[in-house]
Amino acid sequence: MNFKKIAIGMVMLAACLTTSAFAQSIEKSKVSIAVGGKNLFYYLPLTIAEQLGYFKDEGLEVEISDFAGGSKALQALIGGSADVVSGAFEHTINMQAKGQMITAFVLQGRAPQIVFGVSNKTLPNYKSIADLKGKKIGVSAPGSSTNIMANFVLSKGGLKPTDVSFIGVGTSAGALSALRSGQIDAISNLDPVITMLQQKNEIRVIADTRKLSDTNAFFGGPMPAGTLYATEAFVKKYPNTTQALTNAMVRALKWLQTAGPSDIVKVVPESFLLGDRALYLDAFMNIRGALSPDGSFPDAGAATALRTLTAFEPELANKKIDLSKTFTNEFVKKANAKYR
């Protein structure tokens, strides 16, 4: 037996294993994530990944900053105070139109979960969208996905965004107060806020995208919703970090597919319940089908999003948007291979 050759072989194998491990190491272990309304079910997968320690399991130290709306979270990314955003897919299109490449790499929701409702207090005789002309519409934050949804609803009724006034009301108690006090005439928001308003018959729902069937009918195709997205430069520079983030999110999505309402309540912070546990659970059941089962982007989703945006932003039609660069399923495929 040639012990010298065996020894050399073992050294070479060890070197290969070390090189392989190094190649897979996380380039950036501390990651800051911006989110606009963390208490919303729209971002529930992010909360689950954080609360159950899935980010830590992937070797990440994640700091999540909560903002009043998705547009504010996007500003944090563009301004450099956040590495990643948990936010609406359509921002990837809008930013590319402005010359800034943003890539979504894991899908949290396959339906927007946004509901547009009219106040029964200030507009008790509402008949059509035309009645909203000159009225005040509450959105989480101007420019956010709730604003985009409101714009699309208005366009279907022949109104332009400039025909109304948009007011940022946040996504929790502030939104409830604004509608109940009469500060706004309509609201575009998400659960649990919407279910709370519905249960007390405070709004009349005009458009509802909490269910897949309603979403496909309303937008004319699959509409990707909440995602994790980052600049194209970040994804290219930190592929292993991006993969680790995706792994944690896909694991959270799979946990949500089998978790019961009582499991959810045990994991989310008490403040998310808005003082009503039963209502929170009802709201969860309303949106459960909207959560992505595996984090994958549907092939036709980006085209649906672009078509929707163009309906009230006609200038987009003149922009060259490369939809293939707005998202990638590369990391999701690997994550699903790891967490079956």
Rank of each mutant, 00 (worst) to 15 (best):
Q183S: 10
P124C: 04
V62L: 12
N189K: 02
S65T: 15
G143P: 00
R340G: 09
R340I: 05
A104I: 12
V265M: 08
V332A: 08
V139H: 07
D66F: 04
R251F: 06
N39C: 09
F327M: 10
Y43S: 04
E313D: 14
D185E: 06
C16N: 07
K30F: 13
F218L: 03
E270Q: 11
P112N: 07
L176A: 01
V85G: 08
L256W: 07
E27W: 15
S29H: 14
A311Y: 11
S71R: 14
G87E: 15
A73G: 06
P112Q: 09
A283S: 03
A230R: 15
D322V: 13
G70C: 04
V250D: 03
S262W: 01
A34R: 11
S188V: 02
A207M: 06
N247L: 08
K121P: 03
S145V: 04
N2Q: 09
V153E: 01
V11T: 07
L281Y: 06
I8R: 15
G69C: 03
L159Y: 15
L154E: 06
I78W: 14
F3A: 07
A178P: 00
G301V: 03
P222V: 08
Q96S: 09
A335R: 08
L77M: 13
L190S: 05
A141K: 11
K333T: 09
I206A: 02
L46P: 01
T171P: 09
M196E: 08
G295I: 04
I93S: 03
L279R: 09
L40R: 13
A337H: 10
G117I: 00
N318E: 11
G9H: 09
K266F: 04
A305S: 13
A173Y: 08
Y229K: 12
P161K: 08
T19S: 13
A173D: 05
N336D: 04
L159A: 10
F41M: 04
P269S: 02
S145D: 10
I194G: 02
A311W: 10
R180A: 06
T326A: 01
I287N: 01
K320R: 15
S165T: 14
Q75S: 14
T328A: 01
A290Q: 04
G109D: 12
R210E: 07
F116M: 02
G168N: 11
A207S: 05
